[in-house]
């Protein structure tokens, strides 16, 4: 098996077009090496080559582009924690990045890798999703032709669930991405920041510090003159599939306990049983989601 380490993006594209189906793309490799201790022999699908894009400068940079903020796919998760733009305008993404795995892993894992793996408990996926981030992907070349660039919503990027077979017959259920290990995620683009925009991330604290959260949740929305214009919640976790909903908070005053009543009614009526994957019963999941929403909005109100 070949190990490719392209220095420039163009080299990577060329290799992709040539390699086609038989080239697997990787960057931080923290997922692959953890779940497949005897990598690469253990992988269920066979590849001729592995292309490591983790050090491509063109993909690791995050910058503002015509008002929108573009996060490079190989930016390390730890770099998002230190990002000033995210701290100011996309608090949910920054908070989610800070709560991802351990410091060692955050220093190695890339944003693209985290999204491509698609864990339900991934804080970063829920945050990017709630923020309305778009994924720019370059697909592999087919039948000798060059690959295409596509831009997808995260809701379009994932399609159902897949079972990943790992060492010792263990199975991991993750989201299934429409792209494969042969397609290259280029960057994530956050919509342009609007005045009055807010966002937050909350996750259920795991019982053990190396465990994954049962529920993670991100909210983004906007407020004008202290009245909420819109608010969107994306929640998922070890215990539930993705929930992507508009919260019924339009025209609700930001300093109102009425928010909590609205949120409670929303969670109480939402059919959590239909997205439950495990853990507590659906009604209890509703209470958990409400608790996390309440915590987040309380912090916003306190500001």
């Amino acid at each position: 098996m070949e190990f490719l380490s392209p220095r420039y993006l163009s080299e990577a594209f060329e290799a992709m077009d040539k390699g086609g189906r038989n080239l697997k793309i990787c960057a931080g490799m923290t997922h692959l090496l953890r779940f497949y201790p005897r990598f690469p022999e253990e992988l269920t699908s066979k590849f001729d080559g592995l292309m490591h894009v983790g050090d491509l400068a063109a993909l690791s940079e995050s910058r503002e582009e015509s008002g929108k903020y573009s996060i490079g796919s190989t930016a390390r998760i730890s770099s998002l924690v230190e990002d000033d733009y995210l701290a100011r305008y996309a608090a949910a993404v920054r908070e989610a990045a800070a709560l991802t795995s351990t410091p060692q892993i955050r220093n190695r894992r890339t944003v693209g890798g985290e999204v491509a793996w698609g864990s339900y408990h991934s804080p970063l996926v829920s945050a990017l999703w709630a923020m309305g981030a778009k994924v720019k992907v370059r697909t592999r070349g087919k039948n000798g032709s060059a690959g295409q660039e596509e831009t997808l919503d995260l809701a379009q990027f994932y399609r159902g669930t897949q079972k990943r077979l790992a060492a010792e017959g263990k199975e991991h259920e993750t989201r299934s991405a429409v792209t494969g290990g042969q397609d290259l995620i280029l960057r994530f683009v956050l919509p342009a920041h609007q005045p009055g925009q807010f966002s937050f991330f909350r996750g259920l604290i795991p019982k053990i510090h190396t465990e994954n959260s049962g529920v993670v949740l991100s909210v983004s929305g906007s407020v004008q003159n202290n009245v909420i214009e819109r608010a969107r919640v994306v929640a998922s976790g070890v215990w539930m599939d993705t929930m992507d909903e508009e919260l019924p908070l339009q025209a609700v005053r930001m300093n109102d306990t009425y928010i909590f009543e609205k949120l409670y009614t929303f969670c109480d009526r939402y059919n959590f049983d239909s997205i439950r994957r495990g853990g507590p019963p659906g009604s209890q999941l509703g209470l958990i989601v409400f608790g996390l929403l309440k915590e987040g909005f309380s912090t916003l109100l306190a500001r």
């Binding site: 490799m29 923290t30 090496l33 592995l50 490591h52 983790g54 410091p103 060692q104 190695r108």
Partner: peptide, 11 residues
């Protein structure tokens, strides 16, 4: 900091 068990020499 990084876990050396999760890094390949190629990287």
């Amino acid at each position: 900091v990084a876990n050396s068990c999760l890094v390949l020499m190629g990287q």
